[in-house]
Computed example of a mutant assay.
Amino acid sequence: MLLTVGVVLAGCSAPEPVTPAVTGDYTELSLPDGTQLIPPSGTTPAAPQAPSTCGALASLRPGPSVPTGGAPPGRLVADILARDRLIVGVDQNTNLFSFRDPNTDTLEGFDVDVAREVARDLLGDAAKVEFRLLTPGGRFDALEKNQVDIIAQTITITCQRAERVAFSTVYFEAYQRVLVANGSGISGPADLAGKRVCAAADTTSLATIQRVQPQATIVAVPDWADCLMVLQQRQADAVSTDDAILAGLAAQDPTLQIVGPPLETEPYGIGINKTNTALVRSVNGTLERMRTDGTWMRLYDRWLTALGPVTGPPAPTYRD
């Protein structure tokens, strides 16, 4: 998941949103608004550069949110302290990580709770958070324009993305796999040739699908919840993205299962404006505390046991 959809589509014109004619066994129901059908590439793209080789996984060492000795905090940190709330970019369609609870109409999930821990350390109160809903395609623009302070949205750290925004240390590691209906006959990427595979637009899952199975048609939808719908309506044969996201989809439908080997490692980081190094250090301080005081494991046990047992959080890597 190491390239954006813009890179995937380089060299050819971007497909227009369409409602395709009915072919094969696909239903006559309309696809979600904004859906794009990306035809098979026919050739296998080169593997992207691993983030471990370009230094993207190494972040800044934890530091105090307000420096000692009378020095003023960094610009964005000062803004956060002045407004007395942390503005966090999330989505509401990623079950287990960031979703809207229909019973309480509140945002819940692993990423939501991680953001609250950042607010707890920075502002002294985990409730001092303002969540703003972002699409995958708009999240980095919002960060660069300082419309949000941080993004906690299952973001895979890549070399290309690290040129654009800063990342925290890795706080979760996922693996891209495949989700299908029981009895589909699909057991791995080889079986996706000639099939439709759903992925969210403007995510790096698209490039991985094209690399591991260039004979697949990609159904690119606005949100991951749309992939669940098109799979249930037989408008796609499979969904492929991080197992963490797939587990959230499968939890909503017992007729679905995750199959096949890991296709790509997906190290998640919290996105931060590249100029705000003080905030990067503050966020890394929170993540370090969560690793050592048991908070990370408590959140994993609350939200992510569907992924199976883990020994603990990913170890941090620092560059200074």
Rank of each mutant, 00 (worst) to 15 (best):
Val178Leu: 06
Ala216His: 03
Leu246Phe: 09
Val239Thr: 08
Gly185Asp: 03
Gln213Cys: 01
Val221Tyr: 03
Ile270Glu: 01
Ile272Ala: 02
Ala199Thr: 13
Gln176Asn: 14
Cys198Tyr: 01
Ala216Ser: 14
Thr208Ile: 03
Asp202Gly: 04
Cys198Phe: 02
Gln252Val: 03
Asp191Lys: 09
Asp242Met: 09
Gly269Tyr: 03
Thr275Trp: 03
Val230Ser: 04
Met229Cys: 02
Gln235Pro: 04
Val197Cys: 05
Glu266Tyr: 15
Ser240Met: 14
Ser184Glu: 05
Ala225Glu: 12
Arg164Gly: 06
Ala166Asn: 09
Thr255Gln: 10
Met229Leu: 11
Asp243Arg: 11
Arg211Gln: 11
Ser187Ile: 07
Ser168Ala: 07
Val221Glu: 03
Ala190Ile: 02
Thr277Leu: 15
Thr277Val: 15
Gln233Cys: 04
Gly248Val: 14
Leu231His: 14
Thr208Val: 09
Glu264Met: 13
Pro189Phe: 01
Pro214Ile: 00
Thr204Trp: 03
Gln235Glu: 10
Gln213Trp: 00
Ile218Ser: 05
Thr275Met: 13
Ala190Phe: 00
Val230His: 03
Val230Ile: 14
Cys227Arg: 08
Gly248Met: 10
Ile245Arg: 01
Phe167Val: 10
Glu264Phe: 09
Ala207Ser: 13
Val221Lys: 10
Gln176Glu: 14
Ala225Met: 11
Ile258His: 06
Thr169Gln: 13
Tyr268His: 15
Leu256Trp: 12
Ser240Gly: 05
Ala244Trp: 09
Tyr175Arg: 15
Gln176Trp: 02
Ala201Ile: 12
Ser184Pro: 07
Lys195Ser: 03
Arg211Leu: 08
Arg234Pro: 00
Arg164Glu: 12
Pro267Asn: 03
Ala220Asn: 05
Ile270Pro: 01
Ile272Trp: 05
Asn276Met: 09
Gln257Phe: 00
Cys198Leu: 11
Val239Gly: 06
Thr255Asn: 11
Leu256Ser: 05
Arg177Met: 12
Thr169Lys: 07
Leu228Asn: 08
Val230Arg: 08
Val180Ser: 05
Val212Leu: 13
Leu231Ser: 11
Leu231Gly: 09
Thr241Trp: 01
Gly248Trp: 08
Lys274Tyr: 06
Ala220Val: 06
Lys195Asp: 00
Thr169Asp: 13
Asp242Gln: 14
Gln257Val: 14
Thr277Met: 08
Asp237Val: 00
Thr275Asp: 15
Ile258Leu: 12
Val170Asp: 00
Gln215Ile: 00
Leu246Lys: 05
Gln233Tyr: 05
Arg196Ile: 04
Trp224Asn: 14
Val165Gly: 11
Asn273Gln: 14
Pro254Gln: 05
Ser168Leu: 10
Ser168His: 12
Phe172Asn: 02
Pro267Thr: 04
Gly188Asn: 05
Pro189Cys: 02
Asn273Ala: 15
Arg196Ala: 05
Gln233Ser: 10
Glu173Gln: 13
